[in-house]
């Protein structure tokens, strides 16, 4: 009967460790998210570039301000979309933003719901299929504001608000939009104990003279009264159409004439 020598044991252990260690070390949060893995596909995420801005600590998990932007300038390539995930939410998908040449600056701010302390993940995909990821840990505490009664809820999709800058040709201009909508998750109970049905805005689109410039798909983790700040780079003067579409089939729109200075 022969026992493995201590050296063999150690070698075997080391081999086992080597074999198992890389996946453990490289287990970024996006790898545990099916929709994020699908986005990344076979690509290898690249390092710095994608910046995710969130407060370290938030005492109001129902509206956490978030900014995501891609900083480097790519040669012969551009960011096509940025996707946000909240790993600790019942629905991890938060939102996806699609950029075009008329929305060439990949930077978006919004407000999101985080139901506990967790890791927020952003994935950026370029037209050529390159991928960047970024993660940020956020601590969510119970609300500091004490008892607040339910406010009377204003009519959904009423009152779309859009603020436009003075655009200059070829330069990105900051656009801010807000629309009244409860963004009911379908998980919350109403005052009578009945679960309130899911009722959310699913898509937001900006078209310049009929051509889509910027598009956002929204999920229940986007806060009530969705707020979006992004950049448009109009190439020519024309009509801008802002459209919000909710899952009941209703839509709201806002039209504006774009002038370039």
């Amino acid at each position: 009967m022969s026992y493995p020598s201590p050296l063999t044991t150690r070698l075997a252990l080391a081999g086992a460790l080597l074999f198992t260690a890389p996946p453990l070390l490289a287990s970024d949060a996006w790898q545990r998210l099916e929709p994020a893995r699908a986005l990344v596909g076979d690509a290898v995420p690249e390092g710095d570039g994608l910046v995710l801005e969130l407060p370290h600590v938030s005492e109001d998990g129902s509206a956490v301000p978030l900014t995501v932007r891609f900083e480097p300038v790519l040669e012969d390539d551009a960011i096509a979309s940025i996707h946000l995930f909240a790993t600790g939410n019942p629905y991890p998908e938060v939102a996806g933003f699609h950029f075009t040449e008329q929305a060439a600056r990949p930077e978006v701010s919004t407000r999101v719901r985080l139901n506990e302390s967790q890791r927020v993940v952003a994935v950026a995909v370029s037209r050529e299929g390159r991928v960047w990821t970024s993660e940020r840990e956020v601590r969510v505490t119970v609300s500091g504001c004490l008892i607040r009664g339910d406010e009377e809820t204003p009519e959904a999709l009423a009152n779309p608000r859009v603020s436009l800058p003075d655009f200059r040709a070829g330069e990105p201009g900051e656009v801010r939009t807000l629309i009244t909508h409860p963004m009911e998750t379908g998980l919350r109970e109403g005052p009578d104990g009945e679960v309130l049905p899911r009722y959310i805005i699913e898509t937001f689109r900006v078209s310049l003279d009929g051509e889509t410039a910027f598009e956002a798909e929204l999920h229940p983790s986007v806060s009530a009264n969705p707020y979006l700040r992004f950049y448009l780079t109009p190439q020519a003067e024309g009509e801008a159409l802002f459209e919000w579409q909710d899952d009941s089939g209703e839509r709201a729109e806002y039209r504006a004439e774009l002038t370039l200075s």
Binding site: E59, T141, V142, G144, I147
Partner: peptide, 24 residues
């Protein structure tokens, strides 16, 4: 008390002793 170790106790007591007001 707001968000730390005493917050769960505060929220529990608040829920237990909430009294609707006739007006704000």
């Amino acid at each position: 008390t707001m968000s730390g170790v005493l917050a769960p106790l505060r929220l529990w007591l608040e829920g237990l002793t909430a009294l609707p007001l006739p007006a704000r």
